[in-house]
């Protein structure tokens, strides 16, 4: 199926599958696989609003090269390897066929499961605001803003959400 030949419903489904697949690959720690879902002009950000300082904040902001570098260095860092699990619900998909792109809003809840004992705790809640490139054979993630409601993140994380 090419994007141009696809029906609106096909495109909507393809976008949803892309988002869910992106969650699965991060859950599995398959970072090269996650990058395969991303466009060359990817921009990935994690942001939040602070009511304490009444300002927008950016906690992670990388292009595709930056994400590749981040993944490359992960094995050299000390980190909490308790796995993160993302539960996503795609709320909205808006396809712009003229521009060959789509925008999607996804509610996401991230849990952390302790390696020792297996207890699962809530890590963060927020939304993905995604821009998706529809011009190729398959949809590609061109922009993801992880917009966090949770601002108190315990010991934090080295992993993208």
């Amino acid at each position: 199926m090419t994007i141009r030949a696809a029906t609106r419903k096909d495109l909507d489904t393809a976008v949803r599958e892309l988002i869910y697949r992106s969650c699965l690959r991060l859950d599995e720690g398959d970072f090269p696989g996650w990058l395969e879902l991303c466009a060359p002009d990817l921009r990935y950000t994690i942001t939040a609003y602070s009511p304490e300082i009444r300002q927008e904040m950016t906690w992670l902001d990388h292009d595709r090269d930056g994400m590749e570098g981040l993944f490359k260095m992960l094995p050299k860092h000390n980190s909490d390897h308790s796995p993160l699990t993302r539960h996503a619900s795609v709320y909205l998909v808006e396809v712009d066929e003229e521009r060959g792109e789509a925008a999607a809003v996804t509610s996401v809840v991230v849990y952390r499961t302790a390696l020792d004992g297996g207890a699962t705790d809530l890590f963060a809640v927020g939304k993905y605001f995604d821009n998706i490139n529809l011009e190729g054979e398959t949809p590609l993630l061109a922009g993801r803003n992880v917009r966090l409601d949770t601002r108190e993140l315990g010991i934090g994380s080295h992993f993208p959400l």
Binding site: W59, D61, H77, D80, G154, G156
Partner: peptide, 22 residues
């Protein structure tokens, strides 16, 4: 400054997470 800050500090920074883990 925001970009410099995020590399090692902030909840997703490389160093702060390690310090908090320790």
């Amino acid at each position: 400054r925001v970009l410099d800050n995020q590399t090692i500090w902030g909840p997703f920074g490389r160093n702060l997470h390690e310090d908090l883990l320790a």
